[in-house]
Amino acid sequence: MSHYPKSGTWQTCRACGRHVHQSQWGQWRQCPYCQHWQRLTARQRLTQLVDPASFQPLPMPEQAHDALAFPGYQEKLTTASHQSGADEAIIIGTAKIAKRPCVLAVMDSHFMMGTLNTVVSRRLQRACAVAQRRRLPLIVVTASGGARMQEGLYALFGMNLILAAVARLAAAAVPLITVLTDPTMGGVSASFAFKGDVIVAEAGAKIGFAGPRVIQQTMPAQLPADFQSAEQLWRHGMVDAVVARPDLRAYLQTVLASYAMGGNADAID
C-alpha cells in the first residue's frame, strides 16, 4: 500500500516555496505562510464574484485557428485544454452581482498563460457587443501574459479590434470595468486593460508590459522592490483602487450600483 499523497493534494506556493495542503489554501486561495494569493481559474473567479447560478455563458463556437501552422501549437492547445478544463483562455457571459446584471469576460492564466489570440479577441468583441446591445455594464477580469506568440500578427491585430469594440462601448455610454489580476502583462496591459471607466487591481497582482529583467537589461536601471505591483501602480495614479480578493465582490457591487443602468441580462441575441 502506497503512503504517497494523492496527486494534487499538495501545491508549492509560487512566492515562498512552501508546500501547502489543499485544505490550507482556504476559500480565497491564499498561502497560509506568506499570504500570497494563488492564481485562480476563470471558473474559480466566477464562483467568488457572481450570484450563485446567475452566470449564463454566451455561445462561442470558435476554436483557435492555426493560420501560421506553428510547430507544436495544436499539441499545446490540446494539453492546455486537458490541464485547465477550459476550451480557451477566456469565458464570457451574463451574470448578476448582488442581483445587479452585467456582462462578464474572465481570462484564465491556466490556459496557455491566458494569452490573447484570435478566439480570445473575438470573445471580447462579442462581450462588448452584447453589453452595448443590452445596455449592461461590462466587467473584464484580466489574467494574461500578453499576446500568443503561436498566432503572431493575428494575435496582435486582435488588440486593435478589441480597442475598436471598447471605443464603440464608450460612445454608447456603456461602462467598462476592468479588474486587473495576476498577471496582467504584455499586449493585454498595453491595450484594453487600462481602458476601463473604472480600473481595479487585485491586491498583490503583477501588472506591466515587459518583465523587470528585460527592462533592467535594456535601460539599465535599478528597479524598486515593488516594481509592477498593484500597489505601486495605485500610488502613481494608474489604477482607481487596489482591492483585496475577499472584498472584490462587494467593491464591484458598489460600482455597479453607482451606474444602475437597468439593462436586460436575459435578452436573447
Results as ranks from 00 to 15, higher is better:
Q74A: 10
Q63N: 13
R18T: 14
T79P: 03
V103C: 11
Q150C: 07
Q35D: 11
Q150L: 00
H36F: 08
F194V: 11
Q63M: 09
M112E: 12
G187E: 11
P52A: 11
D66V: 03
C34I: 08
I92V: 15
L169I: 02
S121R: 00
R126D: 12
Q24P: 04
E231S: 03
M1K: 09
P224A: 00
P175G: 07
S23D: 13
Q132F: 01
V243Y: 09
A225M: 04
C34F: 09
S2L: 13
V103A: 01
K76P: 05
F227S: 02
A201P: 03
F157H: 13
W10L: 14
V166K: 04
L248E: 09
L176A: 03
G211T: 09
P61D: 06
L138Y: 06
L124K: 00
L176H: 03
V198G: 04
R133A: 15
S84C: 04
P224W: 10
I199E: 04
L233W: 03
S258K: 09
L58M: 10
Q24I: 07
A143R: 12
V166H: 01
G208Q: 01
P224S: 00
I91F: 08
I97C: 06
G85I: 05
F55Q: 10
A260F: 07
R133T: 14
M149A: 15
A127T: 10
S229P: 03
V120T: 04
A53G: 07
L180G: 02
A171H: 14
M112T: 02
G262V: 08
G204C: 09
P59Q: 12
S54Y: 01
D66Q: 05
R100Q: 15
R168Y: 07
S84T: 07
I162D: 04
M60W: 02
P183Y: 01
L169R: 02
P71Q: 04
G263W: 03
D247L: 15
A155M: 00
F227G: 02
R14G: 10
A131C: 08
M149H: 12
Q27T: 13
A129E: 14
R213I: 11
L176W: 08
A221V: 15
V106E: 05
V243W: 07
L252P: 05
E62C: 03
H65T: 14
V214W: 12
P57M: 04
C13H: 03
L68H: 06
Q56S: 09
L124H: 00
P246T: 05
T218W: 09
Q56C: 03
T118H: 13
Q253N: 14
T94R: 15
A42K: 02
A167H: 14
A89P: 04
A230T: 08
W37D: 15
V140W: 01
A165Y: 00
T94M: 01
A203K: 12
V106S: 07
M159A: 13
